[in-house]
Design a protein around this nucleic acid. Structure first.
Lengths: 258, 258
DNA sequence: TAGTGGTCTAGACCACTCC
DNA sequence: GAGTGGTCTAGACCACTAG
């Protein structure tokens, strides 16, 4: 551990569009990522750093707080601020929206409804919803997402008509239920589960795969105002689809508070 | 859209441990998630809200800024703050650390080295690394992660000896290279890719699966100080493994700045 | 008990953007 | 031009905790 370089020398030309605390965050992060400030390195106290950077303590606090939230720093009262130990190899990946994903790849998205049924809830619905929906009526759908008219994703969905006003009147012939629900249900929270499964014969035929080919299965359960809204299973050909993430250390963050 | 309830009435008993802006965030978020403030709803201006909540404008700004980062609010100068339109069905999923994951399920984690080789880089290494490593020497490893002595994850890894000091001297006989690298390389950033693949004959044998069974494949590429450090392919039995997330609307956030 | 971060305030200036 | 959010400041008090 050689003597680390000193921060704070005002970089003469501030980059455009960056706030002061943004600049400080990037400056200190570069010290850490470059290894000049190794894990465990003790930073000067907030007031000192604020003086060196020529900002108020609150601005400095904002910058250090952000770096702590990102996982680069550990801050404790009395003992001060240290560079964090690199953590477990964890990360987060993003699950994109189907339409966006198709369109971003330069292809045209289309939804094709395969089946639509209004029926009483069953016990097996718990596979999609987590809990059994009871005996009240549910809306059950199956459909295929197409990219340039090629199979992209096979969708199986349950909708709670009580939570999604107008669902019973929607035929979803060409409108993806996910897109419709977006406008019909104000705000919701969802949980996700990602697995790998082998395509069944029926699924393989729909997705134009060989039977047994590996597929990525995403199950999303959506709730709003305390009631379930929808549960959906999305099946992607494993060869075609992948989840991607480009992230630093943090594997948390996000609005997990709700 | 009925007249929304009014915020700001101080909730008599402040919850313990919550800061003022935390309380405001949760209060407003509940208005949005409950549907009392529908998408597009125009919020009072910052100064008004600050007065109603009995806080300074900066505290109010902190709360509203957080809600905007989380995706619940959209803020524009002059036109003010509105409840955001629910966005595309996107989300984030967490990739956990292997040891943590095994231990959290109450089982014992063990790593068993299957192969270890120091050799010049090849073109095919680009599959793991993204770029070809050139002709410099790389360290190539294969091993099995066990949970209570049952196969849990099959790992194939390349290590850059120049970036990970001491790697050549490590035999990794029982030490998972990921864990070792954590302590050997100060800080790094990684990119991830998740796919579904069919197990090959060799993989199936190692993981005690049938040939062709669907597996979750995670490829992680790690860099530090501008050079690649390691590239790893983790193969999980699809039946056993799943990625899980419980998240709200936000699919971004995180330290994507780096 | 003293040092540190965590938070809050009142006021200020600026930048953007809609009218 | 005026209204709004974005940011910053100087100072203050508090909570936690290591010594």
């Amino acid at each position: 551990m050689s003597a680390p370089a000193q921060p704070g020398s005002p970089p003469a030309g501030l980059r455009k569009g960056a706030t002061r605390h943004d600049h400080i965050v990037e400056d200190i992060r570069s010290f850490i990522v470059d290894g000049r400030w190794p894990p465990g390195f003790q930073l000067p106290v907030e007031t000192d750093l604020a003086e060196r950077y020529g900002v108020s303590r609150m601005t400095m606090n904002k910058a250090l707080g952000q770096l702590a939230r990102e996982g680069f720093l550990v801050r404790r009262k009395k003992s001060g601020t240290q560079v964090a130990q690199p953590r477990a190899e964890s990360a987060v990946v993003a699950i994109a929206d189907i339409r966006d994903e198709v369109r971003r790849s330069g292809r045209a998205h289309r939804f094709h409804l395969l089946a639509r049924r209004a029926r009483p809830g069953r016990e097996e619905d718990a596979l999609l919803l987590g809990d059994a929906p009871g005996s009240r009526e549910v809306l059950w759908l199956q459909g295929l997402h197409l990219a340039d008219d090629h199979p992209f994703c096979f969708e199986t969905r349950l909708i709670n008509p009580d939570a999604a006003e107008g669902a019973k009147e929607q035929d979803f012939a060409d409108l993806a239920p996910g897109a419709w629900l977006l406008g019909a249900v104000p705000w919701s929270v969802a949980s996700h589960r990602v697995r790998a499964v082998n395509a069944t014969a029926a699924e393989a035929k729909l997705l134009e795969l060989e039977v047994g080919e590996a597929c990525l299965e995403i199950v999303r359960r959506t709730q709003a105002a305390g009631d379930w809204v929808t549960g959906v299973r999305l099946l992607y050909p494993g060869s075609e689809h992948q989840l991607v993430a480009n992230f630093g250390p943090d594997a948390g963050g996000g609005p997990s508070r709700g």
